[in-house]
Design a binder for these strands. Structure first.
Length: 855
RNA sequence: GGGCCAGUGGCGGAACUGGUAGACGCGCAGCACUCAAAAUGCUGUUCCUUCGGGAGUGUGAGUUCGAUUCUCACCUGGCCCACCA
């Protein structure tokens, strides 16, 4: 009597084996090629969600596969442990963020272990630990030394009641989320990192990343946004300094009818000193709105004349200067030249305020109607003095030359990418290692005094960082002067921690340096996996950090991640009922019953509570408010970790959104049961089912499957089709005649299938491998090889098309020539019927696939 | 406003380099086993059809002997960023 499949028992047996044997701890080994596989580490929010499960299963499947292919695989895991949610929880529960964070880490580590992930837990790290952040503090001081970090004022959201800086997400409808007070804009001095110094290298480096999806590289290119243009200087009577603007369209310079500057521009302060009340009010209203650019965008385009004129650098004409709420101080020079005839936004602004519109370009194509909007196409210059008649491209060069010759401008490359503001007025983050001397000078903390340890026992109450005024932290003696000084209370943006963790995993336990030679053994990461929402920010910051670490001499590679697999979101169906006023009430899936017709189509859904119908909603991101969240823990309890993993990999390609389905999970579970019974039958020397499939056909299918699964997993990373191929093989094995050669083929197939399924369902295969009598642990056994000699056939089945439509299938010798094929095809009864004696115009052969007869 | 991606049966998806559209799974229907049910195994399942066949991959055009795949325009949905000059 064979045992039945009990996921819970199988999984705990396999997991305790891995723990006892330390199966997945790894050391540098020069005899084997290394493979570093990394999934983006989680923020310890308290519990694993399905997105994590998908991410980590993908990484685990790749890691286990590569190990079987002979690589020395490093797969670590850690915690992105600083951040705002810990502070919010702390305010709510009045406990220190550290306690909350560490408790969450303990719980989530257990959850991860329950998924059977092949991590080297000895390398675990948490970014909130001093032995980790100590080194980013050190790297920051190196950046200060190299001029890569500097101080600049930046605008923040200020809550005047709570006396604290707010994150954009803490501003709700322009008010502080806790106090409800109207949020103000405040300028404060902060640290910035000169990521723009590396803009060109970050852009060019994308060429060396063939393992990254084109879509992600395109997003990064657009994010970096290199644009070639000209900086133009307009003399201003009232100011000593000329007003500098950046433009990518110097060809339209002769069409400038006004200039616009940002509300924060210094020229605005100067104009306000003239005492224009209306102007003062306008600027005040701009400056008091939030910093959220999404909010600014929703505003009407508005502006006000400054009462100042500028002198056009070529014509010498006077043009008025305006302040406008859509000009950003943080991009370019904080001032723009306005050409309403050829820029849509300038056009709208000019229309609204009655400013002149002067066309200077005749578009190359199409009708142009300046009453309908701006003409933004390039073309031929008109009404442009000496430049009239030139093309836009030629005028660009001639005007740039003229400006450079007169010292009134210069060619310049501008980036959309801005320097990275890293100061945060937060408690639960890595302290910026800087001391403010009594005279206001800033001193980076010397290496021997690092780390600057964040006190972990403080509890924020919502009114600013508790570090402020916490004397044991702030009161220090300057290492430079020996005099009393104040410690900086700002902390780093948490992207700082996540920008280099991949490197630190290589050097566990190192306490004398940030990284050592082990980093160069493992880096770059061979395979990185994580949400596509990080396509720009995190993945640019990490690439930047890597280059800085290279320039400081810590690593010798240029890029951190060789191959990147962006994984899609996990969605679920949601059910709701809409009331008369449009408010939706959501129902959890277990509160809903679905009725179908006899073809399986959904007719309607009703709530089990009252039997009344509910709407079947769209697919939505899992969330509490939509009541469509599925807890991984309960899914594991219901079907086992192997089934959850298998379903996740089977239901969709890795980079596309995945729709959670309880029925689909059952399907995965059913397949595992089918596989289990197949193994039981083989162990007992019986056939798993009934049928007459011959041994050689089964063996051929087996080796075809090995070939397909190997290619799907390695080159294509198409895990759903790899699983489909294994299911197909299993279906066939159930029909194999176990007499004679059949028994041997079944055993060969069961072993190979167990190997191929192992990365997806590591527990059940671990146990089945032992049942099949194998003594080498499956984790160390090598991946099966397809026997190519079994795959060549001497006859092939070809499709016959007549005028591109499929009409018949023929058997032909594999080496048949065109004339032979034509004869065989025309001999077919159905083909003959459609050819119907008409003259043959063409005969097309696609070797091994089809022939097409054109009549 | 910009960028990126995706639209294929009742559903998730497959078709890799332009070559048999719908693999595999779910759902549904039927059969076997059973006193019965569950479980399991097997069979069928794009739509229409006068049973010859016809239509069909968001819509409309184009290239081609042949288009889910390439080109153009449009529609719909999702994600990221956003007044980026």
């Amino acid at each position: 009597m064979s045992q039945s499949y009990d996921p819970a028992a199988v999984e705990s047996a396999a997991q305790s084996y891995w723990e006892e044997q330390a199966t997945f701890s790894v050391q540098e080994d020069d005899t084997r090629e290394k493979f570093y596989c990394l999934s983006m580490f989680p923020y310890p929010s308290g519990h694993l969600h399905m997105g994590h499960v998908r991410n980590y299963t993908l990484g685990d499947v790749i890691s286990r596969f590569k190990r079987k292919r002979g690589f020395n695989v490093l797969q670590p895991m850690g915690w992105d442990a600083f951040g705002l949610p810990a502070e919010n929880a702390a305010i709510q529960n009045k406990v220190p963020p550290a306690d909350w964070t560490y408790a969450n880490i303990d719980h989530m580590r257990q959850q991860l272990q329950g998924l059977g992930l092949a991590y080297d837990w000895q390398r675990e790290l948490a970014t909130c630990k001093p032995d980790y952040y100590r080194w980013e503090q050190w790297l920051f001081t190196q950046m200060v030394e190299r001029g890569l970090a500097y101080r600049k004022t930046a605008v923040v959201n200020w809550d005047p009641v709570d006396q604290t800086v707010l994150a954009n997400e803490q501003v709700v409808d322009g008010r502080g989320w806790r106090s409800g007070a109207l949020v103000e804009r405040r300028e404060i001095e902060q640290w910035f990192i000169r990521i723009t110094d590396y803009a060109d290298e970050l852009l060019d480096g994308l060429e060396q990343l063939p393992g990254w999806p084109d879509a992600v590289k395109t997003m990064q290119r657009n994010w970096i946004g290199r644009s070639v243009g000209v900086e133009v200087q307009f003399t201003v009577d009232a100011a000593e300094q000329p007003l500098t603007v950046f433009t990518t369209r110097p060809d339209t310079l002769m069409g400038v009818t006004y200039l616009a500057v940002a509300p924060e521009h210094p020229l605005v302060d100067q104009a306000m000193a003239q005492g224009d009340e209306a102007l003062r009010e306008f600027v005040q209203s701009c400056r008091s709105s939030t910093v959220s650019e999404a909010v600014i965008e929703a505003q009407e385009k508005a502006g006000h004349a400054l009462g100042i004129d500028a002198i056009h650098p070529i014509t010498g004409e006077r043009v008025p200067v305006w302040v406008a709420n859509f000009v950003l101080m943080s991009y370019g020079t904080g001032a723009v030249m306005s050409v309403p005839a050829h820029d849509q936004r300038d056009w709208e602004f000019a229309r609204a305020y009655g400013l002149p519109i002067k066309p200077v370009i005749d578009p190359a194509q199409g009708e142009a109607d300046l009453d309908a909007g701006a003409i933004t196409d390039k073309g031929t210059l008109i009404d442009s003095g000496p430049y009239t008649g030139l093309t836009s491209e030629a005028a660009f060069e001639r005007i740039a030359d003229a400006l450079e010759k007169d010292g009134k401008g210069r060619r310049r490359i501008n980036f959309r990418l801005r320097d990275w503001g890293v100061s945060r007025q937060r408690y639960w983050g890595c302290p910026i290692p800087v001391i403010r001397e009594a005279d206001g000078a800033l001193t980076p903390v010397p290496a021997e005094d690092l780390p600057v340890v964040l006190p972990e026992d403080l509890a924020p109450d919502g009114s600013g960082s508790p570090l402020k005024g916490h004397a044991p932290f702030t009161e220090v003696v300057s290492p430079k002067t020996g005099q009393p000084a104040q410690r900086e209370t700002d902390t780093f943006d948490t992207f700082f921690e996540s920008s280099w963790y991949y490197a630190r995993f290589c050097c566990p336990g190192l306490d004398t340096a940030m990284l050592d030679e082990r980093a160069n053994h493992w880096l770059p990461v061979d395979q990185y996996i994580g949400g596509v929402e990080h396509a720009t920010m995190h993945l640019i910051y990490s690439r930047f950090f890597h280059k800085v670490m290279r320039d400081v001499g810590l690593v010798d590679s240029d890029e951190p991640f060789k191959r990147y697999l962006p994984q899609g979101m996990v969605l679920a169906e949601c059910f709701y009922r809409e009331s008369a006023d449009g408010k939706k009430t959501y129902f959890a899936p277990d509160e809903v019953e679905i009725e179908r017709d006899d073809k399986g189509r959904v007719i309607r859904a009703v709530a089990t509570t009252d039997g009344a119908p509910v709407s079947v909603g769209a697919l939505e991101k899992m969330s509490k408010s939509k009541r469509n969240g599925v807890d991984p823990q309960s899914a594991i309890q219901q079907a086992g970790a192997d089934a959850v993993r298998l379903f996740m990999m089977f239901a969709a390609p890795p980079d596309q959104t995945l729709v959670w389905s309880d029925a689909g999970l059952e399907g995965a579970s059913r397949f595992l049961g089918r596989y289990w019974r197949l193994v039981q039958a083989v162990v007992e020397g019986q056939a798993p089912g009934q049928g007459q499939v011959a041994a050689d056909e089964a063996r051929r299918k087996l080796h075809e499957t090995i070939g397909k699964v190997t290619d799907d997993m390695d080159r294509r990373q198409s895990f759903n089709t790899a699983i489909a191929a294994m299911m197909e093989l299993t279906n066939l094995l159930y029909k194999v005649d176990a007499n004679g050669e059949g028994a041997a083929v079944l055993r060969e197939a069961a072993l190979a299938l167990t190997q191929m399924l192992n990365p997806f369902a590591p527990h059940i295969t671990h146990v089945c491998w032992q049942m099949l009598g194998e003594t080498t642990p499956i984790e160390d056994a090598t991946w099966p090889e397809a026997d190519e000699s079994l795959l060549v056939a001497d006859s092939v089945t070809l499709t016959v098309q007549v005028n591109g439509k499929m009409r018949a299938r023929i058997e032909a010798p594999a080496d048949a020539d065109e004339a032979q094929l034509q004869a065989i095809a025309l001999a077919d009864e159905n083909v003959a019927r459609f050819v119907d004696g008409k003259p043959l115009r063409r005969f097309i052969v696609v070797p091994g696939k089809l022939v097409n007869i054109v009549v």
